[in-house]
Amino acid sequence: KISNIINMMPHARHDLLVFADSDVGVGPDYLRHIVGELEKPGVGLVTCVYRAQPDPGFWPRLSATATHYQFLPGVVTGLALGLARPCFGQTIAMRRATLEKIGGFLPFVRHLAEDHAIGEAVRAIGETVAIPPLAISHACAEASAAQLFAHELRWSRTIRSIDPTGHVGSALMHPLPLALLAIGLSS
């Protein structure tokens, strides 16, 4: 992904840069919200939370359920407690000057979670990462149990690599296994 962006950068003509994954959907007010946040003092990067938009079928709906009942509550909880410092790759918007201050995209080519690393780099230069009150949609297209498992495993490994404590804390977002454990221990 980052290599593709690096290859496209010579063609970018403007000072405001907005990158969005190819599997996201946005509303007509998307750019207004993004640019509005980016114009606030001290904001160096804007990113968006996302909700799931499943393809037809059982596995895409199950994937969407994971987004709605695991990912989103975890993000909201982490932000409310001041524990989360997200930067979501589905949308990253920044000024060209900010990108230059963090060394461009080349330093992030080999990162597993390049979006998170970009957000941390922006924070390291003293700018903030803003999340507007806007949710974009992310396509859930896993067509089989194997694809869904691979997606969830990759997601879990990514979270573990960037936030080990948050990864352990995500167990709180899965009450059924905890309830079954409690029942087993109480007998």
Results as ranks from 00 to 15, higher is better:
35 V>C: 13
35 V>T: 15
35 V>N: 13
35 V>H: 11
36 G>F: 10
37 E>M: 15
38 L>N: 07
38 L>H: 08
39 E>F: 15
40 K>Y: 12
40 K>I: 15
41 P>K: 14
41 P>N: 13
42 G>I: 12
43 V>K: 15
45 L>T: 12
45 L>Y: 13
45 L>F: 11
47 T>V: 14
48 C>E: 13
48 C>V: 11
49 V>W: 06
50 Y>G: 05
50 Y>E: 10
51 R>F: 13
51 R>A: 12
51 R>T: 12
52 A>Q: 01
55 D>I: 12
55 D>Y: 15
55 D>M: 13
56 P>E: 12
56 P>T: 08
56 P>F: 08
57 G>V: 08
58 F>V: 13
58 F>S: 13
59 W>F: 10
59 W>C: 01
59 W>Q: 02
60 P>K: 05
61 R>A: 11
62 L>I: 11
63 S>R: 12
63 S>D: 15
63 S>C: 09
63 S>K: 11
64 A>E: 00
64 A>W: 01
65 T>W: 14
65 T>S: 11
66 A>Q: 00
66 A>M: 03
68 H>Q: 14
68 H>N: 06
68 H>I: 00
69 Y>F: 15
70 Q>P: 01
71 F>N: 02
71 F>S: 01
73 P>R: 02
73 P>W: 04
73 P>N: 03
74 G>M: 04
75 V>P: 01
76 V>I: 09
78 G>I: 06
79 L>E: 10
80 A>Y: 06
80 A>K: 06
81 L>N: 05
81 L>F: 05
82 G>A: 06
82 G>E: 06
83 L>S: 03
83 L>V: 10
84 A>L: 02
84 A>K: 04
84 A>N: 05
84 A>Y: 03
86 P>V: 11
86 P>S: 04
87 C>S: 08
89 G>W: 04
89 G>A: 01
90 Q>V: 02
90 Q>A: 04
90 Q>Y: 05
92 I>F: 05
92 I>S: 00
93 A>K: 05
93 A>E: 07
93 A>S: 07
95 R>Y: 10
95 R>E: 09
96 R>Y: 09
96 R>P: 09
98 T>F: 04
99 L>M: 05
99 L>N: 03
100 E>G: 07
100 E>L: 01
101 K>Q: 07
101 K>W: 09
102 I>H: 02
